[in-house]
Design a protein around this nucleic acid. Structure first.
Length: 261
DNA sequence: ATGGTAGTAGAACTA
């Protein structure tokens, strides 16, 4: 049995965030760091900087938007890109990396833009497609981790103003139901397992709210979920606010978990 | 407070 440390971080441009990401990796040495919104095409992904820190990295991105990456101390056994159905592949939103004893699904769920936008319909569909992906390629009795910027705050305690935000695309009842339908495949929210009922624990703070971290004006929209065999072996899950308080931060911060596997 | 900032861009879009 060994300790497995995994983290998720929406970097909002990997090239802009290297001064935060690389020192964080060196200090925390997670086995796996999953990133979203890398905002870079594959030819320009900063592979060398990760290698210099001792990390292998797999990624799929595009020039300006989206992009996902998985950095790991050990090279994954297998890597799969996108939802792999007959819809848009969205390779820059989903990357699955299989390691010995655990499959890791790193997702950047579509934000949805606006409740009346086509993008919102697409977001709801995306959760359904992910559920189908799980059903046909994995089983919940095996160790699976689903993590990333899932663009949904599951409960009232996961947002700073549940009344006002009820119509927001990351908090609307329809979105929470869509998320719950994926979760019900066989996932447990690992952060909640270790912090039941704890309000005010956020992973995202809008740039436009001055002093958002200090004021507690945030959202818990980044998540680490795991199937039962892993959940019961989880040791800890916590939000590291320090990256959000540094110079030139992402608007998200790091969420990390540890397992005995 | 339906404002505000930051990213990639090199104007306007996305979050």
């Amino acid at each position: 049995m060994s300790r497995f440390k995994i983290a998720t971080y929406n970097v909002n441009s990997i090239r802009s965030r290297l001064p935060i990401v690389i020192p964080w990796l060196k200090e925390n040495r997670p086995d796996v760091l999953c990133m979203q919104e890398t905002k870079v095409d594959d030819a320009r992904f900063p592979v060398a900087e990760f290698a210099a820190a001792g990390y292998h990295v797999v990624f799929k991105g595009e020039k300006q938007y989206n992009g996902v990456a998985v950095a790991s101390l050990k090279k994954p056994q297998d890597v799969f890109y996108g939802l792999a159905d007959d819809g848009p592949a969205d390779v820059a939103r989903l990357i699955r990396a299989d390691f010995p004893g655990v499959s890791v699904i790193n997702a950047y769920v579509p934000q949805g833009r606006d409740r009346d936008a086509l993008q919102f319909i697409y977001k709801l569909e995306w959760f359904k497609r992910l559920r189908h992906y799980l059903e046909r390629s994995l089983t919940p009795d095996k160790p699976v981790i689903w993590l990333g910027d899932l663009n949904v705050a599951p409960e009232n305690i996961d947002v700073h103003d549940p009344k006002r935000l009820l119509g927001h695309v990351c908090f609307m009842p329809e979105v929470r139901e869509a998320f719950a339908a994926v979760k019900s495949w066989g996932f447990e929210d690992i952060f909640r397992r270790h912090h039941p009922g704890e309000a005010g624990q956020y992973t995202f703070f809008d740039y436009r709210v001055p002093g958002a971290v200090d004021k507690g004006v945030g959202w818990r929209i980044d998540h680490i979920l795991a199937t039962a065999p892993l959940a019961k072996r989880s040791l800890d899950c916590r939000i590291d606010l320090r990256p959000r308080l540094m110079e030139r931060p992402s608007d998200h911060t790091v969420l990390m978990a540890e397992f005995d596997i």
